[in-house]
Design a protein around this nucleic acid. Structure first.
Length: 512
DNA sequence: CCCCGTTTAAACAATT
DNA sequence: TAATTGTTTAAACGGG
């Protein structure tokens, strides 16, 4: 909704016409695209709705659980289902992307991208669709007797040329008619597949007529087209995000399958590799890890089927089999949390950071750079599903750390006390050894990769990377990061394989 | 082997 | 009184 206006002002219909005429999108491509996107959108929306519902359930359960102590079976089950749904979504988005790739439509006019990059959540998209559809219906009701221009406020009335239904023998039309009838992407099973239309036609000719009259190149169609482009863009963004998450998950679960690896993303450079290093267990519970790891990851490999419900029996009960980021990764850690926020939010994985680092992160994320103990707790549970269980244990640890480390300063307040971070003290905690080979470009690319920089993320970046934000840290930190990156690079330069995601299949939508 | 940082557990005091 | 918050000690573990 917030984005609505920004989006509305983003392009004028003239620009859209330009875009269309420049054949950045040819009519055929566009139509095919529209149709496919719509179908997939529907699928996605269903999934996402269910996902949302479940999350609410989960939240309730967790609230109860907080009082009851032990987590219930339902909770873990729901979590598992959520993972499954995530993967479904990923598949759908993958399909989207493939469609786009096939049509050579991956590049969206740059005028769009900046505003689109903010992204819309599906609900908003749905709303957009609804609005344009409604506007359309309304106009239909009025019929032809009132030739008033479209009422959608979002549009500038720029053209009076097609206020009436004039058949324009344009390039577009001729190319349309040259298509074979059965293959028209906007006509399927006797129904007009224009977004929000669904008009029924007995034969193809009347459909074509309808298409030329109802969906001519006017403000409304342009707007709808614009929405569709936004949909596509949003899906691409979503796909990118989910891909990233998948990567992190696979790295974490240590999947050594024949699955070709996704492109190495600078964002995940540190986190993935560190995670990979960290997940080689030596002690007995390793079996349970790899066992449980196979379940969620199976659908990602070549197996087409995925279980609708995964029970991660032992996914979380692994105790101390994990490694932390060594402290020289402190700076990179900020990146990891940001980039894998969703990952930690959907997988019950212990974040590879020390309590102290996490607490600091929590505090630095707050607008005032100060939190009460309870707020710190909340940050933990909010940010990591892992910390929604065994509350007594980690809360104790949090308190312990707060007291133990000099870097955490308690500040008396009017109402109680808050905790703050003495950044100097935090950095001082250990000498950062440096073997610097500057890899600033990596830092840059990872930062540039952040299309939706929330205030939270901005704060984190700001506080952790002096190059791009406040100059709160010295050059030593940067060098430490550089060396960290360098280490990971050199120790993993061999597994940089080619990648292709085409093996991902569109899983059937589960009957939920 | 020791040192150090971290985690976990637990006892305990103070505060709400 | 019970829960929360804060401090402290101790043991275990792993990396350097």
């Amino acid at each position: 909704m917030v984005n609505n206006e920004a989006f509305v002002c983003a392009i004028t219909p003239q620009q859209m016409q330009q875009i269309l005429q420049q054949q950045v999108l040819s009519p055929q491509q566009l139509q095919l695209l529209l149709q496919q996107q719509q179908a997939l959108m529907l699928q996605q929306q269903q999934l996402q709705e269910f996902y949302k519902k479940q999350q609410e359930d989960l939240h309730l359960q967790l609230l109860q659980q907080r009082h009851a102590g032990k987590p219930s079976k339902e909770v873990t089950q729901i979590m598992a289902q959520q993972m499954a749904i995530q993967q479904q979504l990923l598949s759908i988005q993958q399909q989207h992307l493939l469609n786009l790739q096939r049509q050579g439509l991956l590049s969206v006019p740059s005028a769009l991208t900046s505003t689109l990059a903010q992204g819309l959540i599906p609900a908003e998209l749905q709303q957009l669709w609804k609005e344009t559809a409604d506007a359309r219906q309304e106009e239909k009701r009025r019929g032809d007797k009132s030739p008033s221009p479209p009422k959608t406020q979002i549009l500038n009335h720029h053209s009076s040329t097609n206020g009436h239904h004039v058949h324009r023998p344009s390039r577009r039309d001729s190319s349309q008619e040259s298509r074979s009838q059965g293959a028209h992407p906007l006509y399927s099973h006797g129904v007009c597949k224009w977004p929000g239309c669904d008009a029924v036609f007995g034969d193809f000719q009347s459909f074509l007529k309808h298409l030329n009259s109802e969906h001519a190149l006017d403000d409304k169609s342009t707007a709808q087209c614009r929405v569709q482009m936004q949909v596509v863009q949003q899906l691409e963004l979503q796909l990118a995000k989910d891909k990233e998450r998948l990567q992190a998950m696979m790295a974490h679960l240590h999947v050594k399958s024949t699955e070709p690896k996704p492109a190495p993303q600078p964002v995940n450079l540190v986190s993935n590799l560190t995670l990979a290093k960290a997940t080689i267990p030596k002690t007995s519970p390793s079996m349970s890890l790899s066992q449980s790891a196979t379940a969620p990851s199976t659908p990602l490999t070549s197996l087409p089927q995925m279980p609708s419900v995964i029970i991660p029996t032992s996914l979380h009960s692994m105790g101390p089999i994990r490694k932390r980021y060594s402290d020289k990764y402190n700076i990179a850690m900020d990146q990891d949390i940001v980039q894998n926020k969703e990952f930690y939010l959907s997988a019950e994985v212990r974040p590879p950071f020390t309590y102290a680092a996490l607490i600091r992160q929590a505090i630095l994320e707050s607008p005032e750079k100060q939190l009460t103990l309870n707020e710190i707790y909340n940050w933990f549970t909010r940010t990591f599903v892992y910390f929604r269980r065994n509350a007594a244990t980690w809360k104790n640890a949090v308190r312990h750390n707060l007291s133990l480390h000099k870097c955490f300063v308690r500040v008396e307040n009017v109402k109680g006390a808050v905790w703050t971070v003495d950044e100097l003290e935090f950095q001082k905690r250990r000498p950062q050894k440096i073997t610097g080979s500057p890899l600033v470009k990596n830092i840059q690319s990872s930062l540039g990769q952040n299309p939706t920089l929330s205030s939270l993320q901005a704060a984190m970046v700001d506080s952790s990377l002096p190059l791009y934000g406040s100059a709160s840290m010295g050059a030593s930190s940067l060098k430490a990061l550089a060396s960290a990156l360098h280490e990971d690079m050199s120790s993993h330069d061999h597994d940089e394989g080619s990648h292709s995601d085409s093996s991902l299949e569109l899983s059937p939508v589960p009957t939920l």
